[in-house]
Amino acid sequence: MNKKIQHSGIIDLVDSKHVVVRVTQMSACASCQIAGHCRSSESRDKLIEVYMDDTNTFHVGDPVRVIIDAKVGYRALALGMAFPLVLLISVMVLVLMLGGTEGMAALSGLASLIPYYYMLFLMRKKIQRSVSFLVEKASF
């Protein structure tokens, strides 16, 4: 059972090595008729860079679908949010168990995220290869 996550978008930029797709995410009430008068409705544009070998078939303005395997999406979510949360809480609990104050625990927890995200930054090329998107032409 191989689940896929798909988003529709428009190509914003085509380069020799990658394609940039603009995906508009809307909140559930953004399509409401009175959404223009309500502060809770919102829509945001996300730019997704998709690296590929052959970009010749894509042109700026083409409607496309950006597809990612759900497993890959979960891996990216774990790297970006779950592991840092576990690290933060673990360091805070450790500092408190060693007799530190709550302020020290909070600062130590936040400080522990600096090397983690720096390590992710250094490994971005390797992560980029394992967390990849697929683009296919779509018709709206």
Rank of each mutant, 00 (worst) to 15 (best):
residue 4 K to S: 06
residue 16 S to I: 02
residue 5 I to P: 01
residue 65 R to P: 01
residue 55 T to P: 11
residue 82 A to G: 00
residue 22 R to I: 09
residue 33 Q to F: 09
residue 28 A to L: 09
residue 8 S to V: 00
residue 48 I to R: 08
residue 21 V to S: 03
residue 46 K to D: 00
residue 58 F to G: 07
residue 59 H to G: 04
residue 126 K to M: 05
residue 77 L to S: 15
residue 68 I to E: 05
residue 135 V to E: 05
residue 97 M to N: 14
residue 84 P to S: 09
residue 39 R to S: 14
residue 128 Q to G: 14
residue 109 G to V: 08
residue 72 V to Q: 12
residue 27 S to W: 02
residue 115 P to A: 09
residue 94 L to P: 02
residue 36 G to C: 05
residue 121 F to Q: 07
residue 139 S to A: 12
residue 62 D to M: 08
residue 61 G to F: 09
residue 33 Q to Y: 09
residue 28 A to C: 05
residue 52 M to P: 10
residue 18 H to I: 01
residue 99 G to T: 02
residue 137 K to R: 12
residue 83 F to H: 00
residue 70 A to V: 13
residue 34 I to F: 15
residue 95 V to T: 14
residue 71 K to T: 10
residue 113 L to K: 07
residue 28 A to D: 13
residue 122 L to F: 04
residue 45 D to G: 03
residue 94 L to C: 14
residue 61 G to V: 07
residue 69 D to S: 09
residue 102 E to W: 13
residue 7 H to G: 02
residue 101 T to C: 06
residue 7 H to R: 07
residue 90 S to E: 05
residue 3 K to T: 01
residue 129 R to I: 03
residue 1 M to C: 00
residue 109 G to T: 07
residue 5 I to T: 13
residue 98 L to R: 11
residue 83 F to C: 03
residue 19 V to T: 11
residue 17 K to E: 11
residue 135 V to N: 04
residue 129 R to K: 14
residue 85 L to C: 15
residue 97 M to P: 00
residue 109 G to I: 06
residue 72 V to A: 06
residue 38 C to K: 13
residue 38 C to N: 14
residue 100 G to R: 03
residue 15 D to C: 02
residue 126 K to F: 04
residue 17 K to G: 01
residue 60 V to L: 01
residue 17 K to P: 00
residue 47 L to M: 11
residue 88 L to W: 09
residue 80 G to R: 06
residue 53 D to E: 15
residue 86 V to K: 05
residue 36 G to A: 15
residue 118 Y to K: 06
residue 126 K to S: 05
residue 55 T to M: 08
residue 81 M to W: 08
residue 43 S to N: 05
residue 131 V to Y: 11
residue 14 V to H: 01
residue 3 K to R: 13
residue 24 T to Y: 07
residue 106 A to W: 11
